[in-house]
């Protein structure tokens, strides 16, 4: 059995950890995009005038919010649902997206509902059509309200993504396990893996601060920034 100098695991396995971190980032980013789109659809259905659609959306949220992510992961990876055989990455992406969409839909629904009705009527009163109203009033106001819980949920997704290691997606967690299985230096390995998770979640928190600053009370700065950048190009 080899004995390892302090710091040697970090040095030797760093490229593997980095590859794992990139896999984690990739699957989480893809899942955030899918879950946001799906969550938006569910939120709109939940606010629909048609009762059947509202019930469907509520049932979706009830179902996926109430099940462990691990269970969804096992389902999509091991049972070959509907005769589909999929690789671990795809199964992980689908399970994470479906699971997180239930949380995002609640966040988006709350955001859409808290957009000031008077501001929407003002958009009507100057003759904006529904699309213009959405992009000029609903989205900017809603995003400002949604950002803190939205980013919070993204951070949770990033951490929970460690569960995909159990269905053999080579993410940061699985690479860490491989490293300490072959080196027996659990402490140091976990330390490096923890540091990398913290770096990734910290980046999201910084992103939140930036968005909140830009979209705070004075959301006009977003536009001014865009124009400033445009005039430089």
């Amino acid at each position: 059995m080899n004995t390892y100098e302090p710091g040697s695991v970090a040095a030797e396995y760093f490229p593997i950890f980095l590859a794992g971190a990139l896999t984690t980032l990739g699957i989480v980013a893809a899942a955030i995009v899918c879950a946001t789109v799906l969550g938006y659809v569910i939120a709109v259905l939940r606010l629909s005038r048609i009762r059947a659609l509202r019930i469907f959306a509520a049932a979706y949220v009830w179902f996926f919010r109430g099940l462990p992510l691990m269970l969804s992961l096992f389902f999509f990876y091991y049972t070959k649902p509907f005769g589909l055989t999929m690789d671990a990455f795809t199964a992980g992406l689908i399970a994470m997206s479906l699971n997180s969409a239930s949380f995002f839909s609640e966040i988006i629904r709350a955001g859409l509902k808290s957009v000031n009705v008077g501001h929407l009527e003002a958009a009507d009163s100057v003759g904006m059509n529904p699309l213009q109203k959405f992009f000029r009033v609903t989205a900017p106001e809603g995003i400002r309200l949604m950002t803190p819980p939205y980013i919070n949920n993204c951070i949770i997704m990033l951490k929970e993504s460690a569960q995909i290691s159990v269905i053999t997606v080579p993410d940061l967690m699985l690479q860490g396990q491989k490293a300490y299985n072959s080196t027996y230096n659990v402490m140091e390995t976990l330390g490096v893996v923890a540091a990398m998770y913290l770096i990734m979640t910290s980046l999201l928190m910084v992103l939140q601060i930036i968005i909140e600053k830009k979209m705070g009370r004075k959301m006009g700065t977003t536009k001014q920034l865009r124009e400033a950048v445009g005039s430089m190009a």
Partner: peptide, 19 residues
């Protein structure tokens, strides 16, 4: 939209867009 472009409105709560 033609109707709203011909007839403007001023609201009790002003309803300026805060952003």
């Amino acid at each position: 939209t033609w109707l709203r472009r011909e007839i403007s409105m001023v609201f009790q709560q002003f309803n300026l867009w805060p952003h």
